[in-house]
Design a protein around this nucleic acid. Sequence first.
DNA 1: ATCTCCTAGATGACTTGTCTACTAGCCGCG
DNA 2: CGCGGCTAGTAGACAAGTCATCTAGGAGAT
Lengths: 172, 172
Amino acid sequence: MVLSRIILGLLALAPMTGYDLKRHFDSTVGHFWSADKAQIYRILAQLVAEGYAEVETVAGSGAPDRQEHRITAAGRAALAAWLASEPERQVERDPFLARVFFGADLDDDGLRSLFAQRRAATRAQLARFERMRAEAGASDRGARLRLATLDNGIAHLRTELAWLDAVEEEVA
Amino acid sequence: MVLSRIILGLLALAPMTGYDLKRHFDSTVGHFWSADKAQIYRILAQLVAEGYAEVETVAGSGAPDRQEHRITAAGRAALAAWLASEPERQVERDPFLARVFFGADLDDDGLRSLFAQRRAATRAQLARFERMRAEAGASDRGARLRLATLDNGIAHLRTELAWLDAVEEEVA
DNA sequence: ATCTCCTAGATGACTTGTCTACTAGCCGCG
DNA sequence: CGCGGCTAGTAGACAAGTCATCTAGGAGAT
């Protein structure tokens, strides 16, 4: 459900192919949702079946044909209905914290490397997000909101680093 | 995979029934993983089939019979192997941020109530976590690590509230 | 000339997780 | 006495997501 509404939302910004959508999930919306391309194509087909999107095959000039998907009026209505609906309850799922929770069964080296890896991954992502933020402009309200979701990610990554500092000092 | 290893980890702390496990997922480990009971029972059966756990039926005195699951040596080895293995890559998935990202399609009232709900939910969870934290003691290293995961949750919830303050001021 | 990468899309098998509903006995409340 | 709630477990249908594999043409590199 959420994925299909995110796709509708992206199609509302511009008509796109499944391939274009995949790139969005690997960049602009990747900080709050990810998607496998098989899943994207299946949901596009479903959106078309539901009448929320229309396909137009654009002959590729020196490239494969593009199946451009365009949101319909019904699709915009469905998007608006989702936005106004009860938010789905959040499922917390962090495999790293699971490892820490049972970290007593790990030797000192294992524990240290667990934290070190997390720190490196967090730093790398923070760098990526900050680069994205530097490139983005916040002209209208839509852009400001989109930027705010990125700031959310940045804030949490910084919190994670601070937490790592505290834990490593206390446990190690 | 992660769920089955978390269940192994919990069984390593004490022998348990599926029902006991479900309560753990609703309390002690709920801040980083949740599980449906149907899923828990299925994985327990699978762990037994793999030889990672053994069942003992304990006749209930004034209650239904309990299927107590006890971790085996092979189970402990599998748990240790998982802890030392490459961490699974994190999938970020936050339906609330998805709504914010497309929040421009929402009217002012809708946007305000979206943030208000998030704030209320975040505050409620923070209160729950802080209560849990107050009750917990950090005697040995295992307990300190388990507490650290709770502190992680608390830190992120506080960050979320701070972010909400900033966003509401800027956007609203 | 071949190889690899990129764009573009389709498909099947599989795993994981959720929802609903059912059985069944005990306890306490009113 | 009936009703709801708790303990304990089972079963089936579905939804969501992942992984691997396949087709196919063009561009650029070796």
